[in-house]
Design a protein around this nucleic acid. Structure first.
Length: 639
DNA sequence: TTAGGGTTAG
């Protein structure tokens, strides 16, 4: 019986056993098949199909040439397909072109090969050529070419499939659902799907994917619940749908259900679940998943490795991230970027720069994302000159046109460092479309440096050019509040109310024993609420004893001093830290994730708590990580 | 009178 170990060199066989040329047991024996035995076509066909590397295929190809079998229609066809399957389209095309009068099998295979390798236009070109040469397509042809179609050509192929009578074929229909799904035409996808004469698990999954990809999670869930024998692909689609559309908790919940349903996760599953862990900042769950991967034979290839690096960075453990990163053997630019961006968000600028140099040294091309990481690193460290240096390097040497995100990093860097005019000029003069977020960044810098006049000038421009969003009103309101212009605050609140804008409430979360606990400001919903508030009282007495003054001026409401203090005391991050202190062992680090930027008062309080309790506190806010150790923060109070 | 081809997750 042939096995997949055919291409490994076996222990030396007894010399008395005559090895048949029909069952070669090593690559060289394929190529050196020169005995009188005529190779069996089935056997060679099998060997071609089993081949996974270009060398194996080339050896078999050579053997075919030696035996004059290269013209054999099936072997030639299989060879062509085999080269395509490893994306060696050069060989595949050469074979195809040397085939006299290729039949529909050859045409379909060459289309499929190109579609598979992402050469979509080429695949469609072959389809047109085939028709021009009078070869009739069949159902296989349509399902192959559809893989290469975006919405417009897809519609044309759809009509042709109807014309040739293959549109009811299960595979063709599934391909059509997929075309409409990819093109975002959910209505048409639905219509094609609903009118399918029969539905397979694959077609159901294709429709499920359509909903999940486009954030139609309710529809996706309803369809998912209807599917009887869910396979791993099905689960992957729904888990990823939640992970990519802002519901990472739901994604983790489904992952647990998948395990309970005894469906074995694969590489694709863990990519989505790791992303979900990263979004939540769930380090314990992420670590558990890492061990699961190791214990269940899921290979840590460059994709899984990068997802792990990303998860560890976002969950606050740079050490674990770096350990995984160093073990990735075939790092691509994405892997390097994830580690560089990780260092950047922790404010480890020097490490980010070092890694960037290392990446360049070994010949990896930096991408636009690399520069986002590097410029972010400059921003967190206030390195204005370095920032300009990298920004220009990117444009001039790497020929990467700065995108809105790069301008965002620069405006943030300049604005934060007090170079307000420079930042203003950069935004005014940039050649790409004006963006509300960028103006928001600039307004944020005006707020930080108390420049009310520039803020008002910008506000006027932004409001009159329809560039305001919810953030603009909030920022302006905050700027007025900080300057004590309560009239201005009232005006902005009115504008916000009229435009239906609501401020996103601050929310902090903390993971204890694999369970996520979320807190809003002043939250009383937690079962241990009473103990949490008692702990808060204790913290307050510690702070008082240490002479800490609450930063009441950051409370942007027109309230009295005592009320402002009370307002600060129940900020979500304070509830989370209080819960962390009562629910974890003394000495363990506490990790908190906040959806907004940490406020000045909470930042000061965290520093004090780290000193008083001797605990390390790691806090991820919307902007970056803060590591509080013994009374100081890794951000150096610059954030 | 034959063999060979296709659809879903990343």
């Amino acid at each position: 019986m042939p096995t997949t170990t055919l291409f490994t060199v076996p222990p030396s066989p007894p010399t008395t056993t005559k090895r048949s040329s029909l069952s070669p047991s090593s690559p060289s024996s394929v190529a050196s098949t020169t005995t009188s035995h005529f190779p069996n076509v089935d056997r060679l066909a099998f060997l071609i199909e089993k081949s996974k590397s270009v060398n194996h295929i080339l050896q078999i190809h050579a053997a075919l040439l030696r035996h004059g079998l290269h013209d054999h229609p099936i072997l030639n066809f299989k060879l062509q397909r085999s080269y395509s399957s490893i994306c060696r389209l050069d060989y595949s095309v050469a074979l195809f072109e040397s085939t006299e009068k290729p039949n529909v099998f050859y045409w379909t295979a060459i289309m499929h090969g190109h579609a598979q390798c992402g050469l979509h236009e080429q695949a469609i070109f072959y389809y047109v050529q085939m028709l021009t040469q009078g070869v009739q397509p069949n159902a296989f042809t349509f399902s192959s070419v559809l893989k290469a179609c975006s919405l417009q050509p897809g519609k044309a192929i759809h009509s042709q499939a109807i014309k040739f009578g293959f549109d009811l074929d299960l595979y063709v229909r599934t391909g059509l659902v997929d075309v409409y799904a990819r093109g975002g035409d959910i209505m048409s996808a639905n219509q094609v799907f609903d009118t399918m004469p029969e539905k397979s698990l694959v077609s159901l999954t294709s429709m499920l994917n359509c909903y999940a990809k486009h954030g139609k999670l309710e529809e996706a869930r309803a369809l998912f619940e209807e599917i009887k024998d869910r396979d791993v692909v099905c689960w992957n689609v729904i888990i990823d749908g939640y992970a990519q559309h802002g519901l990472p908790n739901e994604s983790l919940l489904l992952f647990r259900q998948m395990l309970a349903a005894k469906v074995k996760p694969n590489e694709i599953t863990v990519l989505s679940v790791l992303s979900a862990c990263g979004q939540i900042g769930a380090l314990e769950s992420g670590k558990w998943l890492h061990s699961y991967i190791k214990n269940n034979g899921i290979r840590i290839n460059v994709h899984v490795g990068t997802a792990l690096v990303d998860m560890y960075c976002k969950c606050g453990s740079l050490e674990d991230a770096r350990m995984v990163f160093d073990r990735i053997t075939d790092k691509d630019a994405v892997a390097w970027n994830s580690m560089i961006v990780g260092y950047a968000m922790h404010g480890s600028s020097q490490e980010a720069f070092q890694l960037f140099n290392e990446m360049c040294r070994i010949g990896h091309q930096a991408t636009d994302i690399t520069f986002i990481g590097i410029l972010t690193a400059c921003g967190h460290a206030g390195l204005v000159n370095n920032g300009w240096g990298f920004f220009n390097l990117m444009k001039d040497q790497y020929k990467i046109e700065p995108k809105i995100e790069h301008f965002g990093c620069m405006v943030n860097l300049l604005g934060r460092a007090g170079h307000l005019e420079e930042a203003y000029d950069l935004v005014k003069n940039m050649k790409i479309k004006q963006d509300p977020v960028l103006w928001g960044t600039l307004l944020g810098a005006c707020r930080l440096h108390g420049n009310v006049s520039m803020a008002e000038e910008i506000a006027e421009f932004v409001l009159s050019h329809n560039l305001a969003n919810s953030g603009t009103y909030i920022l302006l309101s905050n700027i007025y509040a900080a300057a004590g212009y309560w009239d201005g605050v009232a005006r902005m609140r009115l504008l916000m109310k009229d435009s239906g804008v609501e401020k996103e409430p601050g929310c902090s979360s903390i993971e204890v024993d694999n369970k996520l606990h979320e807190f809003l400001a002043g939250d009383l919903r937690h079962p241990q609420s009473k103990q949490i508030y008692m702990m808060l009282e204790e913290i307050n007495s510690w702070l008082k004893a240490n002479g800490y003054t609450p930063q009441t001026d950051i409370v942007l409401h027109d309230l009295g001093e005592r009320q402002k203090e009370q307002c600060l005391q129940v900020h979500s991050e304070k509830l989370a830290i209080a819960f962390g202190l009562i629910s974890t062992r003394a000495g363990t680090a506490i990790k908190i994730v906040k959806n907004l930027r940490v406020c000045l008062d909470c930042h000061g309080v965290m520093k004090q708590i780290s000193k008083i309790t001797g605990r390390n506190i790691i806090m991820r806010d919307r902007n970056r990580f803060h590591h509080f150790v013994n009374g100081s923060c890794s951000c150096g109070d610059y954030w």
